[in-house]
Nucleic acid binder design. Structure first.
Lengths: 242, 242
DNA sequence: AGGTACTATACAACTAGACAAATCATTACC
DNA sequence: GGTAATGATTTGTCTAGTTGTATAGTACCT
């Protein structure tokens, strides 16, 4: 008896395929929330675990991303990110046809630790402004950043950043017309719990960390910044020297 | 088999660890207010309840303490206790962002012993009011005290203290608008069994005993008090003369 | 008999929102 | 000038909804 070719199609695979098709068809835009697992289970007439199996498959393929307590969200694609002497986030992304945006999640003044003081050529314990946030492309988080500025040199920087959220224009308003990147160091890391949360990744996902110092025209350090890129959403490209 | 050494790490634990590291790094000095729970929630991209869980963990470890309506403060270090001509417990502590409170454990009227009669310039055997209790900061016992007042001069003092538990306002209600410290003697001792119990210390812990007399504007003694400070929870500072 | 796919249930962890209670800063008032 | 009143801010508490994980059971297939 000829054994029929078993197309063994588990239910969860069919569900995953259906959802994948609906996402591809634009039923669910990137960044939006899928129906709850319970709702999907009711819709397909199966148990919640079966839906979960299918969703886990999609999550492993990077198509969706689940947040406990919140829901399952549709993920986005990958972006090019030129790394040159002048790193200007908005200009870079706008040039490649995506909509850049920034979310500032932290804005405070505190004492510098040893590494920050050394990078900015400050005395230990000097005050610094700290700006932390996310860089998004089309609403999808691309990178998390933390910038540290010497507070003595830019007294009103916090107030300015509270409105513009653009570092370039904030520094310009503070009297720094132009600045360039003096040094950059790149490392591959693994996403910590909090970082994975912010970047909407799973814990342990690959991360590209960039540590750099920006200096003004006179060579004095004005910013000490760290950036954590979501490894599978950006490809850093080394731009030619201008 | 991919490396799967992902031990369960709840988000709140990661947040608590981050904050603990920042406190240890000196970003938030002892006595300083942390960002609000809402700000921390925004910074970590997490719900406020999750931050609260982490903060509760730090509070349980004694690293921070929260005051409703005010904020969360880093607790490290010992309490400063200025020792000047005017010792006002509540005002001293409230000024440094801690929550002071008093527990009165004993309230009686009896005849003075020799030392009390001499300190208050009374005849041997005269009646005195005796108040015993604990002084707390953020619920932690800081000191035990015993105050002795001349009963003849303040007949209704016991009734007043039964409600206010503040010696300053009780004396004010009894007609003493202001009083200053005439003499103070300090000794280092070792905690007795009963004292260790009251102050929640181990027996034999270091104790600072202060014996002093407060006088009114006319120079007449109004209070003879002994205070036993928990040596490792306070640092007495000699305040400048006003 | 054993394995695979799915069901059923229960609980833990996190989110979301609302309201209460304490505190703080400002304003109005006398 | 001091004091009461007010409104905004901040922590505390509660209820409800959603995903993550664990355990146990059932049906079906080889």
């Amino acid at each position: 008896m000829p054994p029929a070719p078993k197309p063994k199609a588990p239910i969860w695979a069919a569900i995953a395929e259906t959802l994948r098709a609906e996402i591809a068809a634009g039923h669910y835009a990137p960044g939006t929330k899928l129906p709850t697992e319970a709702a999907l289970a009711a819709r397909f007439g199966v148990n919640r675990h079966t839906v979960r199996h299918g969703l886990a498959h999609l999550a492993e393929a990077g198509l969706v991303h689940a947040r406990r307590g919140s829901g399952v969200f549709v993920a986005g694609g990958s972006t090019d990110y030129p790394l040159g002497r002048r790193v200007r986030f908005h200009q870079n992304l706008a040039a490649s046809g995506r909509t850049p945006s920034r979310q500032i999640s932290r804005l405070e003044t505190r004492r510098a630790d040893a590494a920050e003081a050394e990078a900015l050529a400050l005395q230990p314990g000097a005050e610094v402004h700290v700006v932390e946030g996310l860089s998004l492309a089309d609403g999808v988080p691309i990178a998390a950043f933390r910038s540290v500025f010497p507070a003595a040199r830019f007294p009103g920087l916090i107030a300015i950043l509270r409105e513009t959220s653009s570092i370039t224009t904030a520094l310009k308003a503070a009297g720094v017309a132009d600045y360039t990147r003096a040094s950059t160091r790149l490392t591959a890391k693994s996403a910590s719990a909090t970082l994975a949360l912010q970047l909407q990744l799973s814990q342990g996902a690959p991360i590209l960390r960039s540590v750099g110092v920006n200096v003004d025209a006179a060579g004095a350090p004005v910013e000490y910044g760290k950036t954590w890129f979501a490894g599978d959403r950006v490809t850093l490209t080394v731009a030619p020297e201008e």
